[in-house]
């Protein structure tokens, strides 16, 4: 069941947009705009889902994905990027989803709701 979401994105405005939207939809959300502190933040915050940007200075999303998976491989990570060309490499990257940033972030809610419903069904079985 996804309740806590960590957003890692160097674009503060974009992360704020998603943070507000998710918070409004009942999630507990925290954002970090400096990728260098992201793994520590992940360890402390212990999210159920990570929304991870790819193009970031100092450390890109692919590197962070490996580092986070080392800490806790069971937490799903969704790539959240403005650049669809990364989609080509997506399959081999072990991220659970690939989401294009959009003015309308409802895709994420839909995805999370799906996961939550599936896990509920699984739990009730």
């Amino acid at each position: 069941m996804i309740k806590r979401v960590l957003i890692i994105d160097d674009e503060a405005n974009v992360s704020k947009l998603y943070e507000d939207y998710l918070t409004e939809n009942g999630f507990v959300v925290e954002s970090i705009n400096n990728p260098m502190g992201a793994v520590d933040k992940f360890t402390v915050f212990q999210p159920d889902l990570v929304l991870l940007d790819i193009n970031m200075p100092d450390k890109d999303g692919f590197t962070l994905l490996r580092e986070i998976k080392k800490v806790n491989p069971s937490v799903p990570i969704y790539f959240l990027t403005a650049h669809d060309e990364h989609k080509r490499n997506f399959n081999s990257l072990y991220a659970e989803e690939f989401i294009l940033k959009s003015r309308d972030p409802k895709v994420i809610i839909k995805l999370i709701k799906n996961i939550n419903e599936n896990s509920e069904t699984a739990a009730s079985c």
Partner: peptide, 17 residues
């Protein structure tokens, strides 16, 4: 074009909000 994408997401997104 890449650089413009992110600001556009936030401008459009916040306008929507």
């Amino acid at each position: 074009a890449h650089e413009i994408k992110n600001p556009l997401v936030s401008i459009g997104g916040f306008a929507r909000r």
